[in-house]
Write a protein that binds this DNA or RNA. Structure first.
Length: 730
DNA sequence: TAGGGTTTT
């Protein structure tokens, strides 16, 4: 096969005047093909319709002119065995014939690695394929480059935050995170670099993919040569085809093994106990095979692991093999996460992976025979009336349950135990999960859309339009932050703010920071506020962890404390051991180092000076606290009683979160976030002086805007105080 | 005086 003679690429496409889009294309355009398609570059056999069939290709790589490597032949064999390979002509034909095609297929069908390549080989000039996760973009691009026997970063590449392994001209197939493609659209509203865009894992409905879909729908009519493929898991629905005006649906079934779904006969009262019993049942009654079970969070998982390890010790006495119990959640150190991919220890033990939703989408563990699905997950919800985002344990969707079940059929036939009744599955679980865009505040989405040149947000064609209240809240916040004007138009400040990959309040703090002469500190803080909590506090060593934290404390500011932690981390050369001794999460801190570097270079590019009062300056933290207030000006609270504060305007009674280092109950604080857990808490707070509020010269603290109430009285008191100080009487 | 699912720019 590989030695068969190939035909030189004929002029077929030019001859019939058809481009891949089925639209006339001038020869001038056609002649702009990159060198890889020159006849001398020896491409594969043209099957007569413009599709190059590498089955009859030569033993020289058409893209490099080099002989193929041994790895190439090995991978080529595997690739041809993929289900999607059989459908390649069908896929190419459909994409040529239609502007948008929806392609469904399970993980394992090979759609992510193969479809973009089919389209490249069919003659598309620049193909981009989005992924929701960085790690997927990297690993898929690497794989495809290997399969095509080309150097990664040349013909095939990837672009993710902090890492661009692509060539501006030579890269013709690029994998990117969805957020990254959205960023690219900031510079190039029409995404004119690409003639083919693939949105992969669209069923996950990430914020960025949703915005991209809306954007692309806008672009399609003005870019007649653009073709789009929306790829998703098979979830039996026509949501995408409807949204894209009856786009054709192709199904590329994956190589899935059957999964036997077993329901409970009666509703389960205590799912934790039911999970434990189900593991015991499987271990004692069912054949060998690893178990994956889903729980909602770290604490639940660590508890369950303890229980199961205890059980494992007891069964050993009864002559049963041991369990190898492994937790899996994203906050777990990477080395611990890796353990779920290793063989069971001792050999022959039954592996039990106790996981959060990471195992539903991000991490795929092969060799699972049993899935236990209690039907719950934590999910973020946003309440626009209180402006609070919170995590809530809630029932999963039918789609999510299907995804979980599928995890048992990846390498062999499996069983999924659903710890709820079949009736509950049909009547109580909603069909789909709420997409992210309906569950979070929209400040950044609005800013992004404005930056993309979309002015009419009301008529923007979201697949699922967000609630009007949420939209209004976002517009209001952006207005007070100075990003939008009275006409809801982007201000110069807003244009600048949209560039930053940060929450809008953090961005505002950052761009204000040179004015407070503390931009060095502000950049550090911005990075620290953008990563997960750096303080580790294991339940059984809580006191020890608290004692260690004391070393970094600046007693009137959690924000300043975070800066101190970061600076200590840098001083200790990013040392992982130092982190673990000090109960700090080194992964989060390293991430903060990267973010800080990126932000500092952005500030420099924008001509915003990096300055600091110096680490010994007595007013260092005062400046930082004022600067935080400049960004988080809508998030202040005043003291009412004991540990209780009241938020300004909304007048919610909130507690100071117990993790705060601020203990002396200052009259006014600025807070980073409002969390709803076992109570209402404000978390990551700093003391502020009330007169700073009026010095912000913002409408937000204009007393005439306040009805008579606690907020007004608190502000009046503060204003009175200000007057008294001015007259030297206080 | 406590709990944070997952991901991205």
């Amino acid at each position: 096969m590989r030695s068969s003679r190939h035909e030189r690429r004929s002029g077929h496409e030019e001859a019939n005047g058809l481009s891949v889009s089925g639209e006339p294309r001038s020869t001038e355009q056609y002649s702009k093909r990159p060198p890889t398609r020159r006849p001398s570059a020896a491409p594969g056999n043209d099957t007569g319709d413009g599709y190059v069939d590498h089955e009859t290709a030569s033993d020289r790589n058409p893209y490099t002119g080099q002989p193929f490597s041994d790895l190439y032949y090995e991978l080529e064999e595997k690739r041809r065995a993929l289900p999607v390979y059989q459908a390649r002509q069908r896929i190419v034909d459909a994409v040529r014939r239609h502007r948008v095609v929806v392609l469904q297929g399970e993980t394992g069908s090979g759609k992510t690695t193969q479809v973009p390549r089919f389209l490249l080989e069919a003659g598309f000039q620049r193909v981009v394929c989005t992924q929701p996760r960085r790690i997927a973009a990297v690993s898929v691009a690497t794989r495809v480059a290997q399969e095509m026997d080309v150097c990664l970063g040349d013909l095939v590449g990837y672009t993710i935050r902090f890492e661009d392994v692509s060539h501006p001209k030579r890269t013709r197939l690029k994998y990117v995170t969805d957020g990254m493609l959205l960023r690219e659209a900031f510079q190039d509203h029409m995404l004119s670099r690409y003639d083919c865009i693939l949105l992969d894992e669209a069923h996950e409905r990430t914020l960025s993919t949703d915005v991209l879909m809306g954007l692309i729908k806008n672009i399609l009519p003005v870019r007649p040569a653009l073709h789009v493929v929306v790829m998703s898991a098979t979830l039996e629905r026509d949501h995408f085809t409807t949204y894209f005006n009856q786009a054709p649906l192709l199904d590329v079934s994956g190589r899935m093994y059957p999964v036997d779904i077993r329901y409970e006969k009666q509703p389960v009262m205590d799912y934790i106990r039911a999970v434990e019993e189900k593991v015991q049942y499987i271990h004692e009654q069912e054949p060998a095979g690893d178990i994956l079970l889903f729980l909602t969070g770290e604490e639940e998982i660590e508890d369950m692991c303890q229980r199961l390890r205890y059980y494992s010790r007891t069964v050993a006495k009864r002559g049963l093999g041991p369990l190898h119990v492994l937790p899996l959640y994203s906050a777990l150190p990477l080395s611990h996460q890796q353990r779920v991919f290793e063989p069971a220890n001792p050999p022959g033990a039954r592996k039990v992976v106790v996981a959060t939703n990471v195992a539903e989408t991000s991490l795929t563990i092969d060799g699972i025979s049993y899935v236990i699905d209690p039907g719950f997950a934590k999910s973020k919800i946003y309440n626009p009336s209180t402006r609070v985002e919170s995590l809530l344990v809630s029932p999963i969707s039918q789609d999510s349950a299907k995804q979980r079940a599928g995890r048992a059929g990846r390498t062999r036939a499996g069983v999924c135990y659903r710890l709820y009744t079949e009736d509950a599955f049909r009547t109580e679980l909603q069909e789909r999960s709420y997409p992210e865009i309906l569950r979070c505040n929209l400040c950044n989405v609005v800013l992004t859309l404005k930056k993309l040149g979309i002015d009419d947000l009301i008529h923007f064609d979201f697949m699922d339009p967000p609630a009007p209240d949420t939209m209004i809240r976002a517009l209001e916040t952006l207005f007070y932050l100075g990003a939008l004007d009275e006409n809801v138009a982007l201000t110069p400040l807003g244009t600048q703010m949209a560039e930053f990959p940060l929450d809008v309040q953090i961005t505002r703090m950052l761009v204000e920071s040179p004015r407070y002469r503390c931009s060095e500190e502000a950049v550090t803080l911005a990075a620290m506020l953008s990563v997960p909590n750096v303080f580790v506090r294991p339940r059984y060593r809580a006191d020890e962890a608290d004692a260690r934290k004391e070393r970094f404390v600046v007693s009137d500011s959690d924000h300043a404390t975070l800066v101190c932690v970061f600076e200590a981390f840098v001083k200790h050369d990013h040392d992982a051991r130092w982190c673990s001794e000090n109960f700090l999460n080194d992964r989060a801190l390293l991430h903060a180092v990267n973010i800080r570097r990126q932000l500092a270079s952005m500030l420099k590019q924008m001509g915003l000076p990096l300055c600091s009062p110096g680490i010994r300056a007595p007013d260092r933290w005062v400046r930082l606290r004022r600067c935080v207030l400049a960004g988080f000006l809508m998030q202040t609270a005043f003291w009412v009683r004991r540990r209780d504060y009241m938020t300004i305007r909304d007048e919610q009674v909130v507690g100071l979160h117990p993790s705060s280092v601020v203990r002396h109950r200052p009259a006014w604080v600025v807070f980073h976030e409002f969390v709803l857990t076992t109570g209402n808490y404000i978390r990551t707070v700093s003391q502020i002086e009330p007169e700073w509020l009026f010095e912000l010269s913002t409408k937000y603290y204009d007393l005439t805007e306040y009805k008579d109430g606690a907020s007004r009285r608190a502000l009046e008191l503060a204003a009175g105080l200000r007057k008294m100080r001015r007259h030297g009487t206080a």
